[in-house]
């Protein structure tokens, strides 16, 4: 599958084509960093509410809108991804790729940190957290501003998954490089977590669902379809019983 789809101009028809990936990362960073549950839920709710209001403004003159929070939700809950196939990327592959990309000396300190990310090292308590270790290695070496929207990030991730399914390692590496060379260190930290499918937010998927909509967890249990959950329950005033009529 071609890996160049993300270079095409984004459609102006979706919210995701307007929202910088950096804004999602800032939100995730805040959710993860703050200690209390009310604060964590507030940051997610602020982002979600902004998305819904923008959605209303963007689609105000349209009928049968299928656009939803799904492009963001699938990045926030990557463990529930069903549409995209596996990335086939683990920490060790990322470590080797970063060493090559950043031209790090193979026997140097930073290469060792990436390759032996499980080893207890510094005082930061980030042993075993590859994304965190990569962040500190990448920080002085990455773009200061990210350029990608949430839609473009999803397109890049599609390309990575498609190239993995096609067993084309060269294109898989190329599509991953396209993604990371356009992202800041902070964005890459979150991209790594999305690819590894463990965001470590300190907030459960049940809580994320309950903030999105009181019936979201139930609908997801029935359908295991995140896109359907986001589309059908986009409007918080619509209940699952209203949706059920359309579903069955």
């Amino acid at each position: 599958m071609a890996s160049s789809s993300a270079s095409q101009p984004p459609s102006k028809k979706t919210v995701a084509s307007h929202v910088p990936f950096a804004d999602l990362c800032s939100t995730l960073e805040r959710i993860q960093t703050c200690k209390s549950r009310p604060e964590k839920t507030k940051y997610f709710k602020d982002f979600l509410d902004s998305w819904r209001k923008f959605h209303d403004a963007l689609h105000q003159k349209e009928k049968d809108v299928t656009d939803s929070f799904y492009p963001a939700m699938r990045l926030i809950l990557p463990q529930l991804e069903r549409e995209r196939m596996a990335y086939g990327i683990k920490e060790t592959m990322l470590a080797k790729l970063y060493i090559e990309l950043l031209n790090l000396p193979k026997d140097g300190k930073d290469a060792a940190k990436l390759l032996h990310y499980r080893a207890p090292a510094g005082s930061r308590g980030d042993a075993g957290d590859f994304a965190m270790i990569a962040y500190f290695v990448l920080k002085p070496r990455s773009p200061k501003r990210g350029r990608l929207t949430i839609e473009q990030v999803n397109e890049h991730l599609d390309a990575i998954a498609n190239n993995n399914a096609a067993k084309n390692k060269g294109l898989l590496k190329k599509s991953l490089l396209q993604l990371i060379t356009q992202s800041t260190a902070l964005e890459q930290k979150w991209l790594i977590r999305m690819i590894i499918k463990d965001l470590k937010l300190g907030i459960s998927q049940q809580t994320i669902f309950s903030i999105f909509h009181p019936d979201a967890a139930e609908l997801h249990n029935v359908t295991t379809d995140l896109e359907k959950v986001c589309r059908q329950l986009h409007d918080p005033s619509v209940s699952l019983s209203d949706v059920s009529i359309t579903l069955f």
């Binding site: 800032s26 902004s50 998305w51 403004a57 963007l58 902070l186």
Partner: peptide
Amino acid sequence: DADVPRWDAFFKCNKL
């Protein structure tokens, strides 16, 4: 395009 709303106007985020 004047008709297209701006995301920035909806989401106030201090960049980290």
